[in-house]
């Protein structure tokens, strides 16, 4: 079993910042992520315009590629597209197993698994993913040029994505469980709602999805009348926010709040000894690349200092 000074789980900006600072502090570092390439959700960001040092906007992919290159240049090792199939974080000597195969030991764990787009987990959603149900306007919008689509979601992402979709589609129908209010930024909502081909179905909660020939059928309950209605469209795009990637930690002994985030104390420490949580997975007010980088820096320097002192 290979032993590292620190194992970082998650290769987004927080995890890569931790890898850069820990590896540059001469620690042996392993970064594990279930996806590839490295970069977390930021790699999917079209343009990052507020990252200090880049007066011209830089693509999220390019920014995170540079972080990856930098972490590797200091000697950090990466295991990407690797699933953690077992682990123990409670004992002093902690370990992870990846892909039911290799095991790695460490005394220090940094968790940086971030957040991912939320799915509705309704019947039919998985079955029709990519075949009528979609999560990305830029990727899949042009398949529906001139078509009539529905959107579930009413937050900022849903409104911004709908502006992209309006370049392609004939009409958009929002299906919203709320009662005549939207939580998205007003100026974006106005831009969308002023469009003549946008309509809103209020107070309807989707229950399942079916197919009828080329059409996708959204079966929803009218929350006012309890009537079940069928809404037939060419496609459905779902934008219902993000969820923390913490389900895999439910038996870890870590304190996790009711929303799935990890509360941390001073220097990103969790309730478990030598286990840290950084980036979007931890409870905090502002989730930005810069705050994720700060978390990664703090946790890594804490581990570097602790190991230096023990020597």
């Amino acid at each position: 079993m290979t032993k590292y000074d620190v194992i970082i789980i998650g290769a987004g900006p927080a995890g890569m910042a931790a890898a850069i600072f820990a590896a540059r502090g001469t620690l042996s570092v392993l970064v594990v992520d279930e996806s590839a390439p490295a970069g977390g959700t930021v790699k999917n960001t079209h343009l990052v315009a507020n990252y200090p040092g880049f007066p011209e906007p830089i693509s999220g992919l390019e920014l995170t590629k540079r972080m990856f290159k930098q972490a590797k240049s200091f000697g950090a090792k990466f295991e990407l597209a690797a699933e953690i199939t077992d682990y123990n974080f409670k004992d002093d000597l902690k370990w992870i197993e990846i892909d039911d195969d290799e095991k790695f030991e460490t005394e220090n764990i940094i968790i940086a698994t971030g957040i991912n787009p939320r799915q509705l987990n309704l019947p039919g959603e998985q079955e029709f993913k990519g075949r009528g149900i979609h999560y990305c306007a830029t990727c899949d919008g042009d398949f529906y040029s001139g078509k009539d689509i529905a959107i579930i979601g009413a937050g900022d992402t849903a409104m911004e994505e709908s502006l992209v979709l309006l370049k392609y589609v004939n009409s958009i129908t929002f299906i919203h469980h709320g009662f005549h209010n939207l939580r998205a930024e007003k100026c974006t909502v106005d831009q969308v709602m002023d469009h003549e081909n946008v309509t809103m179905i209020w107070s309807h909660e989707s229950q399942k999805f079916e197919r009828d020939g080329d059409k996708l059928v959204i079966i929803a309950e009218n929350l006012d009348t309890k009537e079940i209605v069928k809404i037939k469209k060419d496609a459905l795009f779902i934008f219902v926010g993000m969820k923390p990637n913490s389900e895999w930690l439910k038996d870890s002994g870590l304190n996790i709040n009711e929303r799935g985030y990890i509360p941390t104390g001073e220097n990103c420490k969790t309730n478990l000894k030598n286990v840290y949580a950084i980036g979007d997975i931890r409870v905090k007010k502002f989730n930005q690349i810069t705050t994720a980088i700060a978390d990664g820096t703090i946790a890594a320097l804490e581990v570097v200092r602790k190991i230096s002192c023990s020597h």
Binding site: S35, A36, P37, K43, N44, L61, L80, A81, Y135, C136, T138, C139, D140
Partner: peptide, 9 residues
Amino acid sequence: GPMCLPVYG
């Protein structure tokens, strides 16, 4: 796009 890059990766 963001749906494709993870598959290539």
